[in-house]
């Protein structure tokens, strides 16, 4: 499992990359802290490599069931005012965000 990631410089770059993907601003202190934490945790979870799982099916659901569906029947939704009641900014029935440049 990715031996090279033990290098802390690489890992710090990974922390920055992943924080970007997760949309979390990171300070340099955060990077240092999380690089240390992530390094230790990854080292620990690498023990999973000891197991031969090539022929093992992954478990996505603890209890296997299938075909749980609903009928195409309308149900009442949220009243308009409640839909917007927690909005940090709203106007004209819309959730307002900074201008998006598409």
């Amino acid at each position: 499992m990715n031996e090279h990631t033990t290098c802390s410089e690489d890992l710090a770059a990974e922390v920055r990359r992943v924080a970007k993907l997760a949309r979390i601003y990171v300070s340099e202190d955060d990077v240092a802290q999380w690089t240390r934490d992530l390094g230790r945790i990854l080292e620990y979870v690498r023990q999973l490599n000891e197991l031969d799982v090539d022929s093992v099916e992954p478990t996505a659901h603890a209890i296997p069931v299938a075909n749980v569906m609903r009928d195409d029947e309308p149900r009442p939704g949220l009243p308009h005012t409640e839909a917007l009641s927690n909005a940090p900014a709203a106007r004209d029935g819309l959730f307002i965000v900074p201008k998006i440049i598409e």
Binding site: A83, D92, L94, F95, V97, K99, I100, E102
Partner: peptide, 10 residues
Amino acid sequence: HFAQSSGVDF
């Protein structure tokens, strides 16, 4: 899209 902001309709 508005002049200063954008709005979202879900």
